[in-house]
Write a protein that binds this DNA or RNA. Sequence first.
DNA 1: CCTCAACATGACGACATCGTCAACTTAGGC
DNA 2: GCCTAAGTTGACGATGTCGTCATGTTGAGG
Lengths: 197, 197
Amino acid sequence: MTAPLRADALRNRARLLAAARELFASRGLDVPMVDIARHAGVSNGTLYNRFPAREDLIEAVFADRMEKLVALADRALRADDPWEGFASYLAGACELQATDRGFNQIAARGMPQTPAVRELRRRGLAAVTEVMARAQRAGSLRPDVAVDDLGFVIWGVSRTVEAAPGAWRRHLALMLDGFRTEGAHPLPDAEPPAHSA
Amino acid sequence: MTAPLRADALRNRARLLAAARELFASRGLDVPMVDIARHAGVSNGTLYNRFPAREDLIEAVFADRMEKLVALADRALRADDPWEGFASYLAGACELQATDRGFNQIAARGMPQTPAVRELRRRGLAAVTEVMARAQRAGSLRPDVAVDDLGFVIWGVSRTVEAAPGAWRRHLALMLDGFRTEGAHPLPDAEPPAHSA
DNA sequence: CCTCAACATGACGACATCGTCAACTTAGGC
DNA sequence: GCCTAAGTTGACGATGTCGTCATGTTGAGG
């Protein structure tokens, strides 16, 4: 269906992706489209040719970050200590947030919902679910939390990273202590929410 | 120095404040100035007469919310159980955030820095510091946290409230368990940040 | 080398918000 | 009631972003 791109078009596409990756990271997802185009050395028209909507750019740029997250979860699954695995996954995710302003916004707003993204998300969720189950079986992760509760870590750190970039490790450490079986107090029966990234 | 306002001007000022309070709460701090003016039944010019900058409006609207926070801290200080006092203060603060979108943004971005606000902040900080010290003396609040660490709760819940309005109580409960002495693990030596609201 | 479909360009109109200002209206002292 | 300073109005220019489109350029098959 989709005709293959011409050589120059392909080159420009790559340049645009690189530019977007850079600018999203440094200035956030709301950077003007024209700035991305100019940073890539092309006109805004070309940008709109390749990526009709901002969301298309976002998806293209951050798909590999999501892969990284899935990989992180897989690695966490194979960690010696189940709790260390769990903690290292979260630390890795937060590190990504702290490094890339755009990704941090994604963590808060969620990814654009395309089939490809949905599939990645499914895989990641499955892996993380198992990471948590393992830590729970080991008795270190409190039994009354689930994947959706990780949203609190992700969201929380997302804001912390904006307000005090250096402090997220401390924030995470405090939250992790809240996730431990040791010293856990019953949670309100309120619904944990579905989060999207 | 400042000449007293004329009767109609005073009336319009009140209307503007009421309108701003409403719209900030429902639509956030970035609601267009014109919308506030029209919601108050006056022209944008009048709005700019009374409040030359958006920050002036924000300060006027949210000063009493800060008073409420200080009062909350004072009450927490007199709670029977020190930990309950601490927890109820945070719950109250989060409740305010969950109720008022504008206030929630304030919690994230900080208040405009005027002398009056600074003084309120000083009083609130003093009270909360004592609330925490009391809970620490009682042995329920872990000794290696300080007022600045509350930023993590405020910031975190601020994001949660945006992403999943109903879930903040659970988020808070998890964080509170992280603040308990029971089951506390050493924190990274990283700096806790100065937060502003 | 020629041709044409694919591609790139950048000026443009649409839109939203801001803050200002000259012209008009009105409160309140006399 | 009159006068004037205080207050109000809303149209306006400035700014920033968006997405489009007529026009010009170029890659690549024949």
